[in-house]
């Protein structure tokens, strides 16, 4: 199957790119590495008049430390993030998340961290060929009025299956969004609208240009764990990213985020409440992971190759694996 025809521009500067987006708005789509966009083009899930490639925007590549902030350009490849000394030293959980995306074929050149963060929400009933989808009524995300997963639902329940997004939420990261008139800096949870069919709060003229991480305090450990059938390529069936800080042998702060459990990464504030001030023993961890399982239960729907019932049970398992690894590193 051929890709649909489109015009193509590869602006040479960020300023030019923003002007193109300001002019074309929602008729244009942005291509970072293309590993998510090209299959969606092929399946006719998106039919843009114009593809705007960011490949020439070297100003969006690279990682720089500024005080206690690590600034990662949105076009930095997953491999560059994984190989960076400071990321390896301070953010091993982010290295794990990036290493779990696709495969080395995708990580080293085409896959960019900004593109991974803005991965389209996915659903087994939606991410299919045009011919496959033509057999029945179009769903909400496909421009129709029904949901084939939850027949009574008036909303789309496609899931955020980005590995990077989950870990970046656990890390409390921020993103910079730019348009011709300026920039805004928001926390990553605010980037997500919570809607399956329009998952991002980004406007059509905005470009995600940078991710900002804050160096964790001493005694911090983090990790990312992902459930999938195949050891490469597969999107997560459930995933968990966490960052814990221990102080005097007790939890000082816990951030636990879950992936593939709804249209946005799910931050489990209950884990922080349950654990803060307690020793990191198995009883405390069991309590927190049970809360994670309970919180995700309702939003996990039948939209991946694995049964929803199994994924509901695996949330606590993945949360436990992530927390245990993070605690080990925090010590």
């Amino acid at each position: 199957m051929r890709l649909p025809a489109f015009d193509y521009l590869a602006p040479g500067s960020l300023k030019d790119a923003l002007e193109v987006l300001a002019e074309h708005g929602s008729a244009a789509v942005v291509q970072a590495g293309g590993t998510d966009l090209v299959p969606r083009l092929r399946q006719r899930l998106v039919r843009p008049d114009l593809v705007v490639s960011l490949k020439n925007l070297n100003e969006l590549r690279g990682i720089a430390r500024e005080g206690l902030t690590l600034r990662i350009g949105a076009m930095t490849t997953l491999k560059e993030v994984m190989d960076h000394d400071e990321v390896q030293g301070q953010f091993p959980g982010l290295v794990e998340a990036m290493a779990s995306v696709g495969s080395p074929h995708i990580q080293h050149r085409t896959g960019a961290i900004g593109g991974n963060l803005l991965l389209g929400t996915r659903c087994l009933q939606y991410n299919q060929s045009e011919w496959w989808r033509s057999g029945r009524e179009h769903c909400h995300k496909d421009g129709g009025q029904v949901c084939h997963v939850l027949p009574d639902s008036k909303e789309c329940s496609a899931s955020c299956q980005s590995d990077g997004a989950v870990m970046l939420v656990a890390l409390g990261a921020q993103v910079v969004l730019r348009n011709v008139s300026g920039e805004r800096v928001i926390k990553i949870p605010e980037l997500f609208s919570g809607l399956g069919d329009a998952p991002f709060s980004l406007t059509p003229d905005e470009l995600l240009t940078e991710i900002r991480l804050f160096l964790p305090p001493p005694g911090t450990g983090m990790s990312y764990r992902k459930l999938r059938w195949r050891s490469s390529i597969d999107f997560p069936l459930v995933s968990a990213g966490t960052m814990v800080t221990l102080s005097n042998g007790k939890f000082d702060r816990v951030r636990l985020a879950l992936g593939a459990v709804g249209p946005a990464p799910l931050l489990v504030n209950e884990a922080d409440k349950a654990l803060r001030g307690r020793a990191p023993d198995s009883e405390a961890i069991e309590e927190a992971t049970a809360q994670a399982g309970k919180k995700a239960e309702g939003s996990i729907v039948e939209n991946t190759v694995a049964p929803a019932e199994y994924r509901r049970k695996m949330v606590a398992v993945l949360a436990r694996r992530a927390l245990s690894a993070a605690i080990e590193r925090a010590r």
């Binding site: 193509y8 291509q31 293309g34 590993t35 090209v38 299959p39 593809v51 490639s53 080395p104 074929h105 995708i106 080293h108 050149r109 085409t110």
Partner: peptide, 9 residues
């Protein structure tokens, strides 16, 4: 480095 030529314009 290996890339997917079907995903690359």
């Amino acid at each position: 480095r290996p890339v997917r030529s079907c995903l690359t314009l």
